[in-house]
Structure formats: structure tokens, C-alpha cells
């Protein structure tokens, strides 16, 4: 289907985008890669009156070495993430997870900022941001602020980015030899994960992000504290469903999702240990 009518505004910088948002308020929507928004607009589930196209803001498309972090511009495409040399050593979890999102055509268009701001509990990269304890830089009319991944994902398709704000950068701590794993369980290649797990562990730290185990992207506090307390892989994976509230749908019952979370966390712990160096 064709989206309903809207006015089209192209912006060339983050500042222009914020000015446009301030002017048009809740009638406006930002367009990045469009692979979450355009399908919703085609189904007429989203009907913005003004579409603000950020696709030409090249300044927000970068992957930079920033000391102990890697800074990624919000308009960096998923395809850029999978091929970036820096990420192969500094954040392999991010590159690997990005390579499983959708399919190649989707990754050409889809952006990291778009997928995070969409806040889909079934998204892969929100779980990575949680596991890696990423910081998210949000800019608005009164300047910029930095929010942790835990404070970013607030609810179903809801994030800390206000209507007149824009996510501009995501900062991932460098992984530097820490073990990691990304587990995604689905039935067909291009599908969303039925359940997924992003995990980093080693050097006394542990981060676990769960895909599709609640109405928002979720941290598994239970697994993290079990691992930090020296639990065996079996014992740590046993608690993977604690504190989760999985939904049920045609693909899986809530119970089956809990089962998958335990199995996938177990596999992730084993794989992460094999990668530690």
C-alpha cells in the first residue's frame, strides 16, 4: 500500500532536524533508513503529517575510535557495521549481531539509530546495547545528554528520546578480549528472533541482553549476578527466564520462550568462554 499524504522536509544536519521537530511537534516523524517506519506508514499504522528525512546527513554516519569506546553515528547503516574493520576487534558482538538483522537489502538501508529508537523488544541491537552497556547521546533543543542503555528502553516501542529530540551517537565500550556471544533463534533466515541473547563476559564483568523476553529490550540481572558470583554455566543459565515477561504468539508460547532463554544463555556462556583471551 501507499502511505497517506505527508509533507516532505529534508534536513542536512542534526540541528536542522531538531529545529524541524520543534516546529512541527508530534505531527512530524524522523525518517532514517525507513525500514521500521515505512512499513508502518504503508499499513497506515503511522500517518505523520510531516516526514523529516535525515538520509542526507552524512555527518551522522561514522564509526570512530574514541579511546576506551567506539563511537558510532546514529545514521550508520547495519551494513556499515558488519563490514567495519574497527568493530572486528573492538566490538565484534555488535558487528556479528548487525549481520543477522533482517536480510542484506534491509541492512543496506537500516540504521543503528533507527533500530534503537524504534525500541522493538524483538530487535537485535537493543540487546547488544544493553549487554555492552552502551551510552546513547541524545540531542534536543536545550543541548545534548547521555543516557545509559538501561535508561533508554522504557517500554514497548518507547525510548527516552522525546518528541523534539534526536539520537545522534551510540558509544560502545571496547570489548578488548572479553568473551562474547550472540544467539538468535528463529525459523526462517530473515525473521525476527523468537528469542535472542547478546552476552559479554570476562574480566569480572558480565552483560546479558535478552531479545523478545518482555515488552521492552531487557537486561538479565539474574544471569549477570549469577555469573559474577561464580555460578556454573548450568546454574547461570537456569535463571535466564527470571524477571522476564515473554509474550506468546504464533511462533512460541511464553513457556517455550522461557525455555529458549535458558538454552540460549547456556550456549552463549559456553561460546563466550571459548572466545576469551
Amino acid at each position: 500500500m501507499i502511505p497517506s499524504k505527508f509533507d516532505y522536509l529534508r534536513v542536512e544536519s542534526a540541528a536542522e532536524a531538531i529545529a524541524a521537530l520543534t516546529q512541527h511537534g508530534s505531527e512530524a516523524k524522523l525518517l532514517a533508513g525507513g525500514h521500521s517506519l515505512l512499513p508502518l506508514m504503508k499499513l497506515r499504522l503511522a500517518n505523520p503529517e510531516v516526514l523529516i528525512d535525515m538520509g542526507h546527513i552524512d555527518d551522522l554516519r561514522y564509526i570512530r575510535d574514541a579511546g576506551h569506546q567506539v563511537a558510532v553515528g546514529a545514521l550508520t547503516t547495519l551494513d556499515d557495521l558488519t563490514s567495519a574493520h574497527l568493530l572486528k576487534t573492538a566490538a565484534p558482538l555488535l558487528a556479528t549481531a548487525a549481520a543477522t538483522v533482517g536480510d542484506p537489502q534491509v541492512r543496506t538501508c537500516g540504521t543503528i539509530g533507527g533500530t534503537l529508537v524504534h525500541g522493538d523488544p524483538a530487535g537485535d541491537l537493543p540487546a547488544v546495547a544493553i549487554a555492552m552497556r552502551a551510552d546513547l547521546v541524545i540531542e534536543g533543543p536545550s543541548g545534548s545528554r547521555v543516557v545509559s542503555a538501561d535508561d533508554f528502553f522504557l517500554g514497548f516501542l518507547e525510548t527516552a528520546v522525546a518528541a523534539d529530540e534526536l539520537l545522534t551517537e551510540i558509544r560502545f565500550p571496547k570489548m578488548d578480549g572479553v568473551g562474547w556471544s550472540f544467539q538468535k533463534f528463529n525459523r526462517r533466515a530473515q525473521d525476527y528472533a523468537i528469542v535472542g541473547v547478546a552476552l559479554v563476559s570476562g574480566g569480572g564483568q558480565c552483560g546479558v541482553g535478552l531479545v523478545n523476553m518482555a515488552s521492552r529490550p531487557l537486561r538479565s540481572e539474574a544471569v549477570e549476578s549469577a555469573v559474577r558470583g561464580g555460578a556454573s554455566y548450568e546454574d547461570a543459565s537456569e535463571v535466564a527466564a527470571d524477571g522476564t515477561e515473554p509474550s506468546q504468539d504464533l511462533n512460541a508460547s511464553a513457556d517455550y520462550r522461557r525455555h529458549l532463554a535458558r538454552v540460549l544463555v547456556g550456549r552463549a556462556l559456553v561460546e563466550a568462554a571459548s572466545r576469551k583471551h
Partner: peptide, 18 residues
Amino acid sequence: TVLLDGKAVKSCTVLAVQ
């Protein structure tokens, strides 16, 4: 599927203005 600047995209999910 078509190529946009040499990369495959799904042209049903890209606006002409993009």
C-alpha cells in the same frame, strides 16, 4: 530489489525522494 548506489535495496520500502 534494485541497486541504490551499488547496493541492493527493496524498492517497495524506499521512497523515490530518498
